[in-house]
Write a protein that binds this DNA or RNA. Structure first.
Lengths: 202, 202
DNA sequence: ATAGTAGTTGACTAGTTAGTCAACTTGAAT
DNA sequence: ATTCAAGTTGACTAACTAGTCAACTACTAT
């Protein structure tokens, strides 16, 4: 019953792109509406505020990405290969974004999180929640690699946090430097952090 | 000759604190002036824009920090101890900031850099310039540690970039999570990345 | 003491921003 | 075909924002 609409989705897409290619602070509701092709009255019909929209958009993006993450971190794949797959995926995706937007953009979660952490507690909480999820993929992979004797990681949660922070840094760094090649060290750095036990691998 | 003033310095202090405790985007010229106790006319007497002020402020902060960095990374100190000293200093400073502002703030360079990278090219260039300087401290330390056979780092510049990205991530992470304990792993993580050759150290 | 330089002030404009609302349109169920 | 829920619209306000400027004040070198 009633009229149908994809304005909600259009607004979520618009806010993600504007924040990612610019910043949260410089993204105004007017800009979002213009980009989405939606009038402001409709914006306020669906959302209370920019932060409310951002929370919904970030959550929606997370739900989409979930399937992909489940595939990359599939238990059917050996643990160290999962990490390789993830590094490969991250590099590929950042390359696509660079092609599309003419510049390296990094991970939106980290950019937004850092920017709004002191000002938008609810949005920041949502981002933290998603990050915990992401970290769990790493943690279970590390745990498995450890119990298979591939790496030395008696505390997988701690190692996961370490590796996650490292990725956060690399992606932020790539964004600031506008340089994809920053990410090339990712897999090597991960292995250093994980304490890879060098076996016959050359 | 003429009237004397410390408005320039007050404005630089104010903008640094506002950006660090909030964000670049949400910091307005009016807020800066209010915090500095300076009228807007005076602001425009000294600076062209917010970005102009931020560039000057970031540069001034860097010049101040330089002496401290020179002390921490003194060639008179053994290389791995320099890294220990730096980790110790970072932790201490973040603790002070937390006490003062009631929350973990992370490193302003990374926060600002990530936020403005697509929007304020000059400010971003200044930040990159300063980061290159910081990375050099790490690089020379790593180079020295390598030639002393303490670590395996045949390419000190690459290792320095890796460790630097790791710090970037840790500090961003600590800010987002508002949790100092995130930084506790810093030294251990550094040593993993550096490929520390485990000697008689327990 | 005074002239000139360096810095200050408050009142101003014009544009942008978030947020509101009553009238309107669309679709589907009856 | 009518009704009504769901969604749209554009015109509106009030607050905030960057940026300007002419008159003013404080200092200091002569």
């Amino acid at each position: 019953m009633g009229r149908v609409s994809d304005a909600r989705e259009k607004l979520m897409d618009a806010v993600m792109e504007l924040i990612h290619t610019g910043s949260y602070g410089s993204t105004t509701i007017d800009h979002i509406c213009e980009k989405a092709g939606v009038k402001k009255g409709s914006f306020y019909y669906f959302f209370h505020s920019k932060s409310d929209l951002a929370i919904a958009a970030v959550e929606a993006r997370f739900q989409e990405d979930r399937k992909l993450a489940d595939a990359i971190f599939s238990p059917a794949i050996p643990p160290l290969e999962r990490i390789h797959g993830m590094c490969h995926y991250l590099l590929e995706r950042q390359g696509e974004l660079q092609k599309k937007h003419g510049r390296v953009l990094g991970c939106p979660l980290h950019s937004i999180g850092s920017e709004v952490s002191t000002e938008e507690p609810e949005l920041c909480a949502k981002i933290q929640e998603i990050m915990v999820h992401h970290r769990k993929y790493l943690e279970s992979t590390i745990q498995e690699a450890h119990s298979q004797g591939l790496i030395h990681a008696p505390d997988p949660a701690a190692k996961a946090e370490m590796v996650f922070a490292y990725y956060e840094g690399l992606l932020t760094h790539a964004r600031i430097q506008n340089d994809l090649s920053v990410l090339n060290e990712m897999e090597e750095g991960t292995m250093s952090l994980l304490g890879l036990k060098e076996t016959a691998s050359a």
